[in-house]
């Protein structure tokens, strides 16, 4: 009851701040059974300065990751890439020179995800950077419900006997026996988050 009221209050506040009415549908409550897993590669690890270099998003429908219908965008940053991060994401200046302007990329992203819930690993970081670029454009950040897979994992694995849970992606995918995908490729990272979500979401509770 209270959460529903709070949610309505939150949406109403966002509606007031939304500058572009074309995006009003983002604020409608989501009724379907889909979600979208996303991941960004960024030019730095500081959310207040990082630029988006690439974004990947994959729709999750039922038990299926719709890889065939994925979104993968390269974004041209407005500032230089921090050379220290190049070995992590593998994107050099020349690799992103042909990318989309960030405004166009975000428009495509919004069209793809709609008002579906978002799934990700350390989603907070990605959403913070997206929102920093999004607010000046439409007035609000991503209003979508967020599902943090490391939190799902933590809830499942923490116990009084085992208060420490290793939340590294490697540890999670190892424990959940997921296949190894190439790391730091945004599509693979998004898929990995999607796999963790599917596995934890659909697992039948132990009797």
């Amino acid at each position: 009851m209270w959460t529903a009221l709070l949610e309505r209050w939150r949406l109403r506040r966002l509606q007031r701040k939304l500058r572009n009415p074309a995006y009003a549908h983002l604020l409608a409550p989501y009724a379907g059974d889909e979600a979208v897993c996303i991941d960004c590669e960024t030019s730095s690890l500081d959310p207040s300065r990082a630029e988006i270099l690439s974004i990947a998003a994959v729709r999750i429908k039922g038990n299926r990751l719709c890889v065939s219908d994925h979104l993968l965008l390269t974004v041209r940053p407005q500032r230089r890439i921090d050379p220290a991060t190049v070995p992590i994401h593998g994107l050099r200046e020349q690799d992103v020179a042909d990318g989309l302007p960030v405004a166009d990329a975000l428009a495509k992203l919004l069209a793809y995800i709609g008002n579906r819930p978002l799934v990700g690993y350390y989603l907070e970081f990605d959403v913070a950077i997206i929102n920093r670029h999004l607010r000046p454009l439409i007035g609000i950040g991503l209003p979508n419900r967020r599902i943090e897979v490391s939190a799902l994992y933590y809830d499942r694995h923490v116990s009084a006997y085992r208060p420490e849970v290793d939340l590294s992606l490697d540890a999670i995918s190892h424990t959940l026996q997921l296949p190894a995908l190439p790391r730091h490729d945004p599509l693979c990272d998004a898929l990995m988050a999607g796999l963790i979500y599917l596995k934890l979401q659909t697992r039948t509770p132990n009797p």
């Binding site: 038990n63 299926r64 990751l65 719709c66 890889v67 065939s68 219908d69 898929l191 999607g194 796999l195 599917l198 596995k199 659909t202 697992r203 039948t204």
Partner: peptide, 13 residues
């Protein structure tokens, strides 16, 4: 590759 999706089936499903 561009037509393939990834599906997940829990044990027993």
């Amino acid at each position: 590759e561009s037509a393939a999706d990834l599906a997940y089936f829990p044990a027993g499903s």
